[in-house]
């Protein structure tokens, strides 16, 4: 037992106990990722298909929510236009931390085939993105793969770690 006074939380002490808590929390977190449906265009249909009967996204604990306050992950599914860019930032700001973003489909990644005046060339110009998911439109399996990758990423977190500020302010 330590003789000197010690703040175990601040010094990240008590490794055994906390790793277990970490694991437990991460287990809960990864298996109940609630998703903010951000259906914008074609990919939204595939997102719906992955939530529907054949692909059954509920197996992963992914439940679609319509409110940003209840969501952990935002799946940006579809083309983001300049007129809409303001609203995606608003909804991202309204989500409670910790929060993650999956950019689904080429249009959300880079603007895709819509190399025009009206399309935001990549949703990462507006909000920080954690996982880029290629395809036009990605199949539901691809979306599930992306969620599995995100779960893998989440398992590396510790509970007292604050979400680092991401690239975009």
């Amino acid at each position: 037992m330590a003789q000197h006074p010690m703040n175990s939380v601040a010094n990240a002490g008590l490794p055994v106990a906390l790793t277990t808590v970490d694991k437990l929390v991460n287990w809960g977190r990864t298996n109940s990722l609630w998703v903010l449906t951000y259906g914008l265009a074609c990919c939204a249909i595939e997102m719906m298909a992955s939530g529907a009967s054949r692909y059954d996204f509920d197996r992963f604990g992914v439940i679609f929510r319509a409110s940003p306050r209840q969501a952990d992950v935002m799946i940006v599914a579809g083309t983001l236009t300049k007129k809409h860019a303001e609203f995606i930032r608003r909804l991202y700001d309204q989500m409670a931390e910790p929060k993650w973003v999956i950019s689904m489909g080429s249009c959300a990644n880079t603007g895709g085939m819509f190399n025009t005046y009206a399309t935001v060339q990549g949703v990462d110009r507006v909000i920080p993105v954690d996982i880029y998911l290629p395809g036009c439109a990605p199949r539901p399996e691809t979306l599930q793969y992306a969620v599995m990758l995100l779960q893998k990423k989440l398992r590396k977190r510790t509970i007292f770690q604050k979400q680092k500020p991401k690239r975009l302010v």
């Binding site: 083309t79 236009t81 007129k83 809409h84 609203f87 819509f114 025009t116 005046y117 009206a118």
Partner: peptide, 11 residues
């Protein structure tokens, strides 16, 4: 409307 205007006619 116009939140999904991608400029297809221009394309």
């Amino acid at each position: 409307i116009g939140y999904l205007h991608r400029g297809m006619e221009k394309m």
